[in-house]
Amino acid sequence: MPTIVIASPKGGAGKSTAAVVLGTELARAGARVTLMDCDPNGSLTLWAERAAPPGGVTLRSGVSEGEVVRAIRSAEADGAVVVVDLEGVASRLVSRAISQADLVITPMRATTLDATIGVRALQLVAEEEEALGRRIAHAVVFTMTRAIRSKQHQGIERSLREQGVDVIAPGLMERAAYSALFEFGGDLATLPPQGNMEAARDEAARFARAVYDRLVAREAAA
């Protein structure tokens, strides 16, 4: 099964939220998912401590630089879709995880700072493609977006698209439901009502579907 690496050297970009939303939604759609917590802050581990992970989701915690390649290959061979959450720093752990990725997703808030730092992940993917001699699919997802997109958001997105960067739609809006996942654990289906739950569930499902479509399209193109 494929590996999706959530990578950005920028902290607070929404990596762990994207990982939990994606992993739990893929599981709800019928996949077996291994969420791999490679962040020393242990955000996914904290999420799993709030409530047992939903059916179909397994958590692997505390994966270090020396273990990450072997851990990903082991989970892939087990028949699970692997979602790797990384720390928001430029580390060797990130480059090693990307070397095993079928798809790299870079979450990015629609700010110039996030875009400037987040782009370093895209540059790393390009460097690794050349070094490893294989194509590594990658995409950006905007996080913590607002209902009305700012001019800055529009400008950053246009600039990325003009440079040929794949931007996943929908992005993940700033929602109480996403924050509450780390308070209550579980997934959006079991979460006590937080804000507009229906919109959150709908957006999360469409986001997971957009990621799934990219994995299938990549497979068909191979």
């Binding site: 099964m1 494929p2 590996t3 050297p9 996949a31 270090s64 630089e65 020396g66 390649v69 072997r70 290959r73 892939e76 879709v81 720093v89 430029a90 580390s91 060797r92 752990l93 990130v94 480059s95 090693r96 990307i98 070397s99 095993q100 079928d102 370093r120 540059q123 790393l124 460097e127 690794e128 050349e130 070094a131 490893l132 294989r134 799934y212 994995l215 299938v216 990549r218 497979e219 191979a222």
Partner: peptide, 29 residues
């Protein structure tokens, strides 16, 4: 859904490390 073939030998690991270092992604553990 299938994983693409991905090499993970010592040579590939070193290549990934070098690519990372070129972009400032360094060993931090």
């Amino acid at each position: 859904l299938r994983a693409r073939p991905k090499a993970a030998g010592e040579a590939e690991l070193r290549a990934a490390d070098r690519a990372g270092e070129a972009q400032g992604f360094l060993a931090r553990e």
